[in-house]
Design a protein around this nucleic acid. Structure first.
Length: 462
RNA sequence: GUGGUUGUAGCUCAGCUGGUUAGAGUGCUUGAUUGUGGUUCAAGAGGUCGCCGGUUCGAACCCGGUCUUCCACCCCA
């Protein structure tokens, strides 16, 4: 019995035109990564569980795909654990490998393992799929690609500045105007928590604060109260809830608010440096804005936090994110190596470009010239011409069988082929070929002995 | 992981309160056109109504389960 074909939830097949569009994005990202001096590495699709577990918080652990051990794994579980029906306890005994959840933690592991062969500062980029056992939604998959660029071994804030420029360069070339690069600093969040006397509630406080634009001021106050943050503390923090104005104005307010916090003041200084430097250098199409409610990746970011939002009017979560993590390699035993990096969410960028119709028209032009097949003798001459065209780098093909011309034309039309070449009995006897421009509908005759004439014409219009 | 939502022709979707033979547009095939596509006209093919079970004389429609889609949480690219 034939089984019904299907693919797992949250995964996708990519057909030719989708792959072409995805490659278009990859190529642009890659190009800019390389012009910024990043080197490509790859890491395994799965890691030892202990490398991944505990690095993304409890929530993250839940979303890690675990790989079952080989062999008769269940017999090796001790009876007490087996009887306990405790999923976590059992899974640690029947699974010791897991699919990669992001590219940053494997990179940290890589740096520690290869520390003796790396020249620091090390700028690497990596474009590979990652897996999350999440419940899918629009722009949210269980298998998706991340495009990461990170620098390790450089404390300078100039790195942060560079990453803002990198975001700007990529999105500008993609034609995605007006992306908003949001910038925050973990030290500012820590400083605020310190000032309001809720240092121990930093995570709860920032997670709530992060939802400001979603549930509003009243909503986050309520959530903070529920998490055990005092009303007094919330009142102290309230200037943040309505923080507005230019980056510079916001920094002035923050500086005052955080004057008595060493951490907080440092964060303000760092932000000011980045903002001022970018101001002097200028951006092509993106805008950089401070957003104190930004609180992503708190489990490891220690300094700058980046997030890129889709342009206004596009309903999509963030299309990129990143930040500085001073001690990520620390957990693998390498102290005092600072890292900072950003990530592009390829799959989401794809959806945004698609929605805004920003892919170049000719992107899925997989064939530029199609020779029609009029029969054995004609096809032979056509194949000779096709070889010449291919030699000149033209994507050319000969229709494989001499079916009705009508059908062959229809095929060319569906494949979006801009030029169709006809070599029939008459052309063959005259040693010529006819080129039909499928867009204008006009036809022109060339000599078979001089295909360069057509090539010249072709080059000039493409 | 929690709550909801969706699934009917290759694709986009109609389908009344449960009632005979499940429709449209588009695409496909054939012909008008045996050497000219994208427009037009005519004819034709194409369906386990997601899957499994239940209720009923009778189920695309009601009920349960399951898978899938999308949405809100959680979290995140």
């Amino acid at each position: 019995m034939a089984q019904k074909p299907g693919i797992p939830k949250g995964t996708r097949d990519f057909s030719p035109s989708e792959v072409a569009k995805r490659n278009y994005i990859f190529t642009i990202i890659k190009k800019h990564f390389e012009t910024f001096g990043f080197q490509l590495i790859e890491t395994p699709s799965f890691e030892n569980s202990e490398t991944l577990m505990g690095k993304y918080g409890d929530e993250g652990d839940r979303l890690i795909f675990k790989i079952l051990n080989s062999g008769d794994y269940i017999s090796k579980v001790d009876s007490a654990t087996y009887e306990s029906k405790d999923s976590n306890a059992i899974s640690s005994q029947i699974s010791e490998k897991a699919l990669r959840y992001d590219l940053t933690v494997p990179f940290a592991r890589y740096v520690v393992m290869h520390q003796n062969e790396i020249d620091f500062p090390f700028k690497r980029y990596q474009i590979q799929p990652v897996w999350r056992a999440d419940r899918p939604q629009k722009g949210r998959f269980r298998e998706f690609y991340q495009c990461d660029a990170d620098v390790v071994g450089a404390d300078s804030l100039l790195q942060e500045v560079e990453f803002v420029q990198l975001y700007d360069a990529v999105f500008t070339e993609l034609g995605l105007k007006g992306v908003n690069i949001k910038l925050n600093n973990r030290k500012i969040l820590a400083g605020i928590a310190e000032i309001i006397g809720a240092k121990d509630k930093l995570i709860d406080f920032t997670v709530a604060l992060d939802k400001l634009d979603k549930i509003g001021e009243a909503g986050i106050k309520k959530e903070m109260l529920q998490k055990g943050i005092s009303e007094e503390a919330i009142a102290k923090a309230s200037p943040l809830f309505s923080l507005s104005g230019t980056n510079s104005e916001q920094l002035t307010v923050l500086k005052e608010l955080l004057a008595t916090s060493e951490d907080g003041s440092k964060g303000v200084e760092e932000l000011r440096f980045i903002v001022d430097t970018i101001e002097m250098l200028g951006l092509q199409s993106a805008q950089l804005s401070i957003d104190v409610t930004l609180a992503r990746g708190l489990n490891y970011y220690t300094g700058a936090i980046f997030e890129v939002g889709a342009p206004q009017g596009v309903k999509m979560g963030s299309i990129g994110g990143g930040g500085r993590y001073d001690d990520l390699t620390g957990i693998f035993g390498l102290k005092d190596v600072s890292g900072v990096g950003i990530s592009f969410g390829l799959d989401r960028i794809y959806l945004v470009l698609e929605e805004l119709n920003l892919f170049p028209e000719a992107i899925d032009r997989s064939l530029e010239v199609l020779c029609l097949n009029f029969g054995d003798r004609e096809a032979l001459a056509a194949l000779k011409l096709v070889s010449t065209l291919r030699g000149a780098g033209v994507k050319a093909d000969l229709y494989p069988s001499s079916v009705k011309i009508n059908k062959q034309f229809k095929y060319a039309n569906n494949r979006n082929v801009p030029y169709v070449i006809l070599i029939g009995e008459q052309e063959l006897s005259e040693d010529s070929f006819v080129v039909k421009d499928m867009i204008s509908g006009t036809q022109e005759t060339y000599n078979l002995k001089n295909p360069e004439a057509f090539l010249k014409e072709f080059e000039s219009t493409n």
